[in-house]
């Protein structure tokens, strides 16, 4: 493949990032890889231990596999739910309703609140055994589960929190919807295509770059998720919400095993990289770009 006519311009344009990468990002990345072969403890200088950390991870750490399982479960539940939710709401909020600005803002509120202390207290109130959600279910005679204390429920509860904060994906879908030229719909209307048909034939294909982006990003984030579990359950009970992000953080800053945490992180890195590459490979088949390339 040949380079484009103005390829030197392209290189100039990416220069800020390239400098940023070389000056600010490369060193920490390389160091963390180096630490993964040492017993670095933040304070100590760290002796080289070869592959010890990696070997220990796969042979001696019974929480590694558990944590990996929990993380995959979390990603498998939360990512599709969040994207679906975001897409549906974006479609509706793209309609010409009265006070639509207000609604769009209201739907973004949970995301604005992020992982604040208010959220962590509120979430406990909502989902504790005698909390608001179970009180609400009680009205219909349903005895609700112990959302946070039950090993089988707590991960779902964490997922609910992040699904409820679907705002950023929604914003991207909304922005994506604006990029679909209206004349496509006009033409479809003239051809007599129904709304559902239009959704599948126009909206969805035109949104695939955004869907693709959201999917990649949400997976990368989900596999590293830390905040939601840290503020609500702290990884418990009995490691039921012990996400990789939580494990890495605790190993690094609680047990001060930065070398070990780095090794765990690089294993996670490889996993995320493989999954991302897989999705990138598949994108040729289902992502539609308007720029007439690839």
């Amino acid at each position: 493949m040949g380079y484009s006519k103005n390829w030197k311009w392209g290189m100039i344009f990416i220069l800020p990032w390239f400098l940023g990468f070389c000056i600010l990002q490369a060193y920490p990345l390389i160091m963390s890889l180096y630490y993964s072969f040492t017993d670095f403890s933040i304070l100590g200088s760290g002796d080289f231990v070869g592959l010890d950390n990696y070997i220990r991870l796969f042979t001696k750490d019974k929480y590694f596999i558990k944590s990996l399982t929990v993380t995959f479960k979390y990603a498998l539940i939360s990512v599709p739910m969040k994207l679906l939710m975001a897409l549906i709401v974006a479609m509706i909020l793209n309609m010409k309703l009265k006070a639509i600005n207000l609604f769009r803002t209201v739907y973004y509120l949970p995301s604005i609140m992020g992982g604040s202390v208010a959220i962590s207290i509120l979430w406990k109130f909502m989902f504790m055994k005698e909390g608001m959600v179970n009180g609400f279910l009680g009205i219909f005679g349903i005895e609700g589960p112990d959302w946070l204390g039950n090993q089988n429920m707590s991960l779902i509860t964490i997922c609910l929190l992040v699904v409820w904060q679907f705002g950023s994906s929604m914003v991207l879908f909304l922005a994506g919807l604006q990029n679909i030229p209206t004349d496509l719909y006009e033409a479809a209307d003239m051809d007599g295509a129904g709304k559902i048909m239009q959704f599948f034939k126009i909206t969805l294909p035109m949104l695939t770059p955004v869907i693709f982006f959201n999917l990649i990003m949400q997976i990368i984030h989900a596999l590293q998720e830390f905040t939601s579990a840290a503020i609500i359950t702290g990884g418990g009970p009995n490691h039921a919400t012990y996400l990789m992000g939580v494990k890495i953080y605790e190993d690094a800053f609680r047990s001060l095993k930065m070398g070990y945490a780095s090794a765990t992180s690089w294993v996670l890195f490889v996993i995320i990289l493989l999954i991302t590459m897989l999705i990138f490979r598949s994108s040729d088949a289902w992502v539609f770009y308007n720029d007439g390339r690839d």
């Binding site: 504790m128 055994k129 112990d146 946070l148 039950n150 702290g234 009970p237």
Partner: peptide, 15 residues
Amino acid sequence: EPFGEANTFAGSMNQ
């Protein structure tokens, strides 16, 4: 108090 219910307040049992 059952562990799961108590552990909701881990770190701040006064709550």
